[in-house]
Design a protein around this nucleic acid. Sequence first.
DNA 1: GGAAAGGCGACCAATCTGGTCCGATATTAA
DNA 2: TTAATATCGGACCAGATTGGTCGCCTTTCC
Lengths: 131, 131
Amino acid sequence: MLRLSRKSDYALVALKALRALEPGDALSARELASRFGLPVDLTPKVLARLAQAGLVQATLGKSGGYRLARDADTITVAEVVRILDGDPALAPCREGILECHRIADCDLRNPLDNLQREMMNVLDRMTLANL
Amino acid sequence: MLRLSRKSDYALVALKALRALEPGDALSARELASRFGLPVDLTPKVLARLAQAGLVQATLGKSGGYRLARDADTITVAEVVRILDGDPALAPCREGILECHRIADCDLRNPLDNLQREMMNVLDRMTLANL
DNA sequence: GGAAAGGCGACCAATCTGGTCCGATATTAA
DNA sequence: TTAATATCGGACCAGATTGGTCGCCTTTCC
């Protein structure tokens, strides 16, 4: 637990680069990848997810690329993580795959859910702007 | 990220059960496993790790078992996670395996390290007693 | 001595995830 | 209109991680 997936990591690197752009400029996935040593084929995928989610705006065409679609201080780490890694569940039994054999006397779930909320709050408070 | 490993989950379940014990009593791994539906062969391993770390006291022999070795309010979730999942690193490049190609202009690491510390603080404040 | 407990190491299996390949589509420049 | 460059999306492979099992040993109590 508590390790950023590489995709999320790449996303943060890319977003941070896009943030440093002059208004009106854009960066292609290829450019981002080569500049930061990211996997060439994976970078467009990551950016695409961010574009779907509306964090980033993609412009097609010969001199296209990506730019931020929102202000940097409205983009939180929590959101990025949620987009790329899905909504995390602290307890394994909250993922649907594993059914819990001890539901009856399971007084561990609620505290864990609270704990998770608290941790997501930490991630929510951290925006791209103050990263 | 942000999902408890099953081992950590099992550990918390077991610890919580041990906490409810009368002083002097002990629970065997087998008993814990059957009572909470944990994998029979995995449970002793988890408990052994906790015993090595000094969270739990194991007594050998026919009527042996496990009991808490410390007060419940001195056992934190952070400690349990650290024992079973190792010391987590939020950024992939902080794990030693992956060398970072962008160290020079990587101003992402320090903020992530801070973020990680903050999250560990949350886990540090949560003890077995108030879980 | 036998039964029941923990301790330890090796090993298998399933899952997850990073990463690649390929093709389709859209847009712009020449 | 054509070529180049971009996003988009699905299928797929491979390596790492992790969950889980098996077997053997030591210790303790009856």
